[in-house]
Amino acid sequence: MDHGFAASGFRDAAGYLAGVLSLAGLVKRFDGVAAVDGLSLRVERGQVFGLLGPNGAGKSTTIGMAMGLLRPDAGRVQIEGHGDPAEPTARRALGVAPQAEALYEDLTGMENLRFFARIQGVQDPTRAAGEALERVGLSPRGRDRVKTYSGGMRRRLNLAAAIVHRPPLLLLDEPTAGVDPQSRASLLELVRSLAQDGAAVLYTTHYMEEAAKLCDRVGIMDRGRLLDSGTVDELLHRHGTETLVFVQRNGHGEERVATRDPMTVVSQALQAGEVTGLRVERPDLETVFLALTGRSLRD
């Protein structure tokens, strides 16, 4: 669903062709401890790049450097070819949807977006705000104050505030955190459509299935390092070769077996008897994550 946004915005925006984020060899230390250690990644136009990692992995520090809020101790951030993300030109190319709903509750949805458009230097803030509201499906509630919005509506408005000035690069920090499944599906569809319109999206999330469904490429981070990145299929191919078999026996706890030959494991378990439950999980991003980090994403 285009909403006429692509024709009037992203695709024709100046510098669109160079609309990528490039992080090269980023290092950031706090009190001598490396929060980010030699991280490199690249987000191309029209691409959603999912950055996965447990709490403390270094995702927020990476995003902070990408936004120009933190200066890297080493390495380089480039936004649309601009070497300093704090430059006004680079910042105009950046749309941010923080994890918190960064909105003014006592203003209406329209007023919020018009304000964010103004500080971004948009020539016609009212029109831009109207288009962004329409894009996220909030036009009918645009004149209502944000404090009357549901959680899902706030999330959509949060995203609208990031795109009101039609930036070629979007940094979305867990934009679906805490929303109901229906709103999440709607948000994912929206992010996908933004990428289809040409935006480059750096997307962080805790939800593996969400990343698998949405992201063109995924990077897995832990302890400040990007352990691997690629398409979901590539990662599965490289790290998700073992299937998990969960066997529940009478009087015992659940036993987990990672194997490349699940049929044999199942057969052996059944032959041993006293099996009260059996579950087989095909490899997914969670498996990849476990294989790479040795721990669950939400640990």
Binding site: M67, R91, V96, P98, A100, E101, I119, Q120, A161
Partner: peptide
């Protein structure tokens, strides 16, 4: 607290 400061500091200001 609201997070709106992040929007302000990442705006071209």
């Amino acid at each position: 607290r609201r997070g709106t400061l992040l929007r302000l500091v990442t705006a071209p200001l």
